[in-house]
Design a binder for these strands. Structure first.
Lengths: 230, 230, 230, 230
DNA sequence: CATGAATGAGGGTTCATTCAT
DNA sequence: AATGAATGAACCCTCATTCAT
């Protein structure tokens, strides 16, 4: 930024900061490229072309395509974890808490589309890269604990049924929020509805909350018998 | 044209049948390859190596990688449409009908994992290939009509609320069924639960049915206010 | 042409005639394809696609690409020889005879552009195919004899100088007529003049005649000394 | 940018020189290959095999086969233009000047056989590549101006007739010089005379000069009537 | 720390041709 | 005599990567 180096900062410090900024820029461009074209379809040349540094720097800082992809993977997951950690619903009553969690998850998926694409890509590759990153596996999943606490509170108050499992509930919420973004393109072509469009967002967000709350507060979940009426 | 068509017909017929079989075999292998590695990651050489014919035949029959991928896309979608067309729930009472539809959808996703991967891949590429296939777009989506009839019957009987939209309901069902298979790998690594494992299948199938039925039969969907209790 | 086979012609006869017609059609299409794209650039598939028969027939009748090219070569050269044989200038006075020969050659080149392209192509390949065709080599070059007779008559009358050689004169005429067609495209781009356009034809034809006649009737060809005037 | 540019400059300089040499070497080999086999018949593999570098470098430096061909085209034309620019005949009397120009053109064609083949090839392809090279089109054709000045001087002195056009004269000279080299192979086979052989060179060079001078100095070009004597 | 030049390995594709009837 | 199906061999090109400074 400044043409005159700040006198207090030693040269090495500035160098390191430049390096960090370069790395961050590479990661940003790489994230977009991988999200857009998949792992095999992403091009190192293309990433380099979209930056101020050269292709050589990518190898210098990251070592190779796979390591770069892994760095992107860790970046997007870390950002998601940070957002999750910021969720504070424990002061809410259980029903409101679980609905709020669902709706925040909904908004979060809406706002982080690259993350969703990277997760889709990672699943196509059987999570082989994610598996390698002990960092990510160790990051843990505090959201499960959060849901467990909400479920416990709800059961204690008699507002929730007894059968619900925290991981199942998380899967349910994720499913509803993930699909809308991840599958928007095929769904849009086949059903002529743009799921990601703002005009549908509020209705669908409410719907997700309704479904989760409805499921947890139902007196007797499996109340219907598919054979009845045949 | 030929003065003696009779003796040549059986030979030509056999030839044609062999050709059809070869094409079908290529498609099967290509489906697996694309599903496993994505569009860019799939290798024409690999597909050929897994068969009795040579790489050259792929170009002879399909013209190129993209056309082969498109043929796979049409194949998996056509198979899905055929399965959907076989669903017969109109003789059931609305509640049972919608639950049965959800559970059949669940089982169908469970049984057609390549389809799910291909759909994920197609979404990574913004459905650009699906969009090109007028055949698929024209195939239509009878499932929406089916849901609409079920919803209408349910509303008439007073068993369903009035707000539900057929496309939304379809999205909801698809989300719950699709995610479990599509995201099984990342979910498995992070939450240490194999969503696709048989031991979870029955519980999750019932859960999906419960959620859909619960949503449709709820007296007042948006019964909770997220601001309550703050 | 007729839907009813002539009763007097036996089946085999008709078959043979169809075969001849098919061969001739292949040759016509092949001539255009080779002239347009060169030997290596010509495509057997393209030739087949432009006909009513299949690619297989090309191999059936001609054996392969090189033999087909050779057949085209023989065809265009044979047509040229036939046109040359029809030239009748021996009843003309020598000066008129040589001018007429030059002008007929000019018109002939103008009218047979595929021939010119094939000759250019053949020269790029060092005439390796022409060399193989004893038929063409043996066809002989009666034009040289014709020129020799004209030159002899002119010398006898004292109208022509004594130094001119028939082959040189033929080369001279050919050069002037060939270049205009063969190099029309590069010349047109660089000098912005369409040599092959009708508007230039008459002037250039006369010019060719003038040059040849002027050369042969000059009292002393090498009349100028390039060092004079320095 | 670099704090120590001095010690690196020579290295970079040497590198760049090597790169230039490599590019030049590729161009030389490519020129021979294209001239020998035409555009479609030329093989990138063959070009690479004839050099110290690999096929990959051709793409690194030129981008592809067509661009390589275009570079060759620009190279041979640029060399020709440079030779033309070196021609200095304006101090000569008009007759000597035009004869010298013709004879230098003759020698130049004799010495640049690849150029002639490339021009032939380019004409087979309708000058589509030449047309693309604005560089070549813009190079202009100073030879036309030169001829115009010679013609004007000749007319002023009363040594030349009034009808001659500079572009026509250039075409005439080019025709006579080009054909002898371009068509030497078919001409040699059919007329058993090696036009390109040294033993014919001096005679033909003089003949070209004679023809051009004869044409320009003729009192009345169209002095003969082809119908006379019938 | 930084970089322009270079590259081995393989990718998709196309060609002329032949097999089997 | 005639042909639809099949193919081996190469061809142009691109990718991630490393060398040399």
């Amino acid at each position: 930024m400044s043409s005159q180096p700040a006198p207090r900062a030693p040269q090495g410090e500035r160098r390191r900061r430049d390096a960090e900024r370069t790395k961050a820029e590479i990661l940003d461009v790489a994230q977009a490229e991988f999200a857009r074209h998949g792992y095999a379809g992403a091009r190192i040349d293309e990433i380099a072309a979209l930056m101020r540094t050269t292709k050589r720097m990518i190898y210098y800082y990251f070592g190779g395509k796979e390591q770069l992809y892994l760095a992107v993977l860790e970046k997007v997951y870390t950002e998601v974890r940070a957002a999750e950690a910021a969720i504070d619903v424990e002061h809410l009553a259980p029903v409101a808490a679980i609905r709020t969690l669902a709706e925040l998850t909904f908004d979060h998926h809406d706002a982080h589309r690259d993350f969703i694409k990277i997760v889709s890509i990672e699943n196509i590759h059987h999570a082989e890269h994610l598996r390698k990153s002990q960092a990510l596996v160790d990051l843990g999943v505090p959201v499960i604990d959060l849901i467990e606490r909400i479920l416990a509170a709800g059961r204690e108050r008699g507002e929730f049924g007894t059968g619900a499992d925290a991981v199942d509930v998380h899967m349910m919420i994720s499913s509803l929020c993930f699909f809308r973004i991840a599958n928007q393109h095929t769904f849009g072509v086949l059903f002529d509805r743009d799921l990601a469009a703002p005009e549908h967002r509020d209705r669908l967000r409410t719907m997700v909350g309704d479904m989760v709350v409805g499921y947890l507060t139902a007196a007797d979940p499996a109340r219907t018998d598919p054979t009845v009426g045949r």
